[in-house]
């Protein structure tokens, strides 16, 4: 009898994850136009597994890069009345604001996962570009440069995400009087690796003395890769390079132990986790704070790079 009680209790404990969980039996629609993208796919898979383990029924809707189709599918979902929650994955909600309005009016909560936030939505989980910028710039200035030296910045300010990293760079640069900016160069987005390589080659010839450049800070990984290749060819192994994003080519260069020292990985799994947690709270009847929620980014250096290499 006692044993039975234990089993029952244990079961209740198990369900306990769901005990505060009317999430069981809910219909959740994960909607994205970009299931082909690696990171989007990763987030969708994580949420799907997590939600299903908690007893929800999950439908994944992918519209293959087609925003108009995404808009109509949201209309379908909003009017069918069978869905309890919508998660937009990697899709800018402002482009489908009218259709989302239908969902809001139907009382269906809309979450965003690396999407964006508009009024009416519950929560969007994303990374904070300013925080990512801060994280990597501090690492460059403190750990790599020891608070002094010269730096070159490779940027692309027209991009709404990248520009926040650049602002973090500007802000921090003011706090380090012993660090001088040699030049900031804009890298076009079409072929950033090749262009960054050309730019850095030219700058290296203009600053040919060893140690005349301490570090190159790139606002995302591709120019960092181009800079690394240029440095390698010129044999300037004293110059330190960092990127942001954590793309695989950058990660493998960090693992090789060359000029590229660090990057910042966006925490996509963390974003997915935030969405599931907030959804649970909502179905549980708790108040949730509407707006953007940030998944803290992770610094990748030679020390932890092995965890990030995809097999």
């Amino acid at each position: 009898m006692k044993k039975l009680l234990v089993v029952v209790l244990a079961l209740m404990m198990l369900l306990g994850t769901v005990a505060h969980a009317e999430i069981a039996g809910k219909q959740v629609a994960l909607m994205t136009p970009y299931l082909g993208s690696v990171t989007t796919n990763q987030m969708v898979e994580y949420m799907k597994t997590d939600l299903e383990s908690k007893g929800a029924t999950v439908t994944v809707i992918n519209t293959n890069n087609d925003f108009a189709m995404l808009a109509s599918r949201i209309e379908d979902v909003a009017t069918s009345g069978q869905t309890d929650a919508i998660v937009l994955v990697s899709a800018d909600p402002s482009q489908i604001a009218n259709q989302l309005q239908d969902a809001f009016e139907a009382g269906i909560p809309v979450f965003g996962c690396d999407s964006g936030f508009i009024d009416g939505m519950a929560v969007n989980a994303t990374s904070d570009n300013y925080q990512m910028g801060e994280l990597i710039v501090k690492y460059v200035f403190d750990e790599l440069m020891g608070g002094k030296g010269t730096v070159i910045a490779l940027t692309h300010r027209p991009h709404p995400g990248v520009v926040k990293r650049c602002i973090a760079f500007d802000d921090l640069l003011k706090e380090y009087p012993d660090i001088t900016l040699i030049t900031e160069q804009h890298v076009p987005a079409e072929q950033p690796i090749n262009d960054a390589q050309t730019i850095v080659e030219n700058l290296l010839l203009a600053n040919a003395e060893k140690d005349s450049i301490t570090a190159i800070w790139a606002a995302w990984d591709e120019p960092a890769i181009g800079a690394t290749q240029a440095l390698k060819e010129a044999g300037r192994d004293e110059v330190l390079v960092t990127g942001v994003d954590g793309n695989q080519q950058a990660i493998s260069l960090i693992a090789e132990g060359g000029n590229l020292k660090a990057t910042v990985a966006q925490n996509f799994e963390g974003m997915a986790k935030i969405v599931v947690e907030e959804m649970e709270k909502l179905f549980d009847g708790q108040e949730i704070e509407k707006g953007e929620k940030y998944a803290p980014a992770t610094l990748i250096t030679l020390d932890n790079v092995n965890e990030f290499i995809e097999k």
């Binding site: 079409e190 072929q191 390589q197 290749q229």
Partner: peptide, 16 residues
């Protein structure tokens, strides 16, 4: 040649 040079193929590498 761009792809060979940078060791990866960006989907917009030639557009510029």
């Amino acid at each position: 040649l761009i792809a060979s040079r940078v060791g990866s193929a960006n989907t917009t590498a030639g557009d510029g």
